[in-house]
Amino acid sequence: MVVVIGAGVHKATHTLVAVDEVGKVLGQGVFPARREGHLRALGWARRAFKDRELVWALEDCRHLTGLLERDLLGAGQRVVRVSPKLMGTARRAGRERGKSDPIDATAVARAAQAHPDLPVARHDEASRELKLLVDRREDLVTERTRMINRLRWHLHELDPDLAPSAGSLDRAVVVTGLRERLLTLSGLVAQIAVEVLDDIGVRNAQVRDLDRRIAAAVEQAAPVLLEVPGCGPLTAAKIVGETAGIERFRSEAAYAMFTRTAPIPVWSGQTAGRVRLNRAGNRQLNCALHRIAITQVRLGGPARDYYDKKRAAGKTSTEAYRSLRRHLARTIYNTLNHNGQAAAAAPLPAAA
């Protein structure tokens, strides 16, 4: 006898609804979104359903459910992640009218029942730390880009010839030289430009420090990914962080679906055999695979041969890259799943 407990999560409170095997509501409760509230919720579930197996279904919004997920996993509970799309479908299929926290929690629980192959949450500190580091670096790079754009407007107002070449303001020698030239100028605009340039220098130092930390963490967590041609430390860190444990995927096809590289068949009339672009899944992973694909095609080798073969068969460049990303998803899955025993250096399987 399994009881699925769905959670409607918010910053202040979590609404929990328990349903049985047929989706009937057995009980519900509202608990603070704090560690003590999570312990109270766990005690409530154990007392109310002490003779049944508990499965906790959490909507996949990590910033709201991260602490609850870690507390439940620390208590030895089984936790699955339900995508918001599945929850919305289950809510629209329900008989309850309107939208409320109990309705959302019930929809999450019923969606977990209807899809028994949902990703299972698990403790993986290495992938979590890499994701935090990569996200922090991306935030800093975004802030630096905004500062660089603002600086270029100030430089254009002072003297268009002061503007450095594109993509050069991440180098210390360029920042230092530009700062010395700006100090020779007078006026408020020049003063503000120097302050913005100093902020850019601070961001550069922070990004370089994060690059070193990420490279060291990848060397420890997934060194086999660095053996894949075109996969550098930042791309490897993105893959490990977004995958969050390759063991939670039952097959390489499931992982391909998660990475948005598995095409969707089109079955309508005379269109059998055609496929449609898959727009579901993790866009970050898809982007990481695309970077690897572009690099491998540029470097040559089996990936370039496969790309040229697709182009010769009448595929567009975009379609050829989609096919290559699908093969790369298989390579990454085998590389991570076999702990380095797979042939990580081969960008494509033998059949390709």
Rank of each mutant, 00 (worst) to 15 (best):
P116T: 10
E180C: 05
R146H: 06
A112E: 14
D139P: 01
R110M: 05
A109M: 15
E138M: 05
R136N: 07
A172K: 06
H115V: 14
H123T: 08
T145Y: 00
L169W: 06
Q191A: 11
A112T: 04
G167N: 06
L158W: 01
V120C: 06
R122H: 11
Q191L: 12
L130P: 11
L118H: 05
M147N: 07
L182S: 07
S165F: 04
E129V: 11
A172S: 02
T142E: 14
T106D: 14
R150W: 01
A172W: 03
R110H: 02
E157H: 04
E157P: 04
Q191G: 06
R150Q: 15
L169I: 09
R110I: 10
R128Y: 05
L151E: 09
A111W: 00
A163M: 11
L158S: 08
R122D: 13
L169N: 11
H156K: 04
G167R: 03
I103M: 04
P116D: 05
R137S: 10
T145Q: 15
H115L: 04
G177N: 12
S186G: 03
R181N: 15
M147E: 15
R181P: 09
P119D: 01
V173Q: 10
Q113C: 11
Q113H: 13
V108N: 02
T176H: 08
L162K: 06
R122A: 12
E180Q: 13
D159V: 12
P119E: 02
R122M: 12
D104W: 02
T184K: 15
D117R: 11
V141L: 08
D161L: 11
V134M: 07
T145L: 10
P164E: 15
S127G: 10
V189K: 01
S127Y: 03
L133Q: 05
I148L: 05
V194T: 14
P102Q: 14
Q191S: 08
A107S: 09
D161C: 05
R171E: 10
L130E: 12
I192V: 07
T176C: 02
D170K: 01
T106P: 07
D101I: 08
T106I: 09
R136W: 01
M147P: 02
T176P: 02
D104P: 07
A193R: 01
E143N: 07
S186D: 15
W153C: 11
I148W: 00
R146L: 06
R171S: 07
R146G: 14
S186I: 08
L118A: 06
D161S: 15
H156I: 02
V173S: 14
D124A: 01
P116S: 13
I103K: 07
R150C: 05
V173M: 02
A190R: 11
A190T: 10
L182R: 01
H156S: 06
V194P: 07
L140I: 08
L162E: 12
A166W: 00
D161T: 14
L132A: 15
E129A: 09
P160L: 01
R181T: 06
L162C: 13
A190H: 12
R144D: 15
L188E: 00
E129W: 00
L155C: 10
E195M: 00
V174I: 14
R110Q: 03
R171W: 02
R137K: 11
V194C: 11
A114E: 10
A193D: 09
G167W: 00
D117G: 09
G177D: 12
V134Y: 03
E180S: 15
E125Q: 05
I103E: 08
P116G: 08
A107E: 09
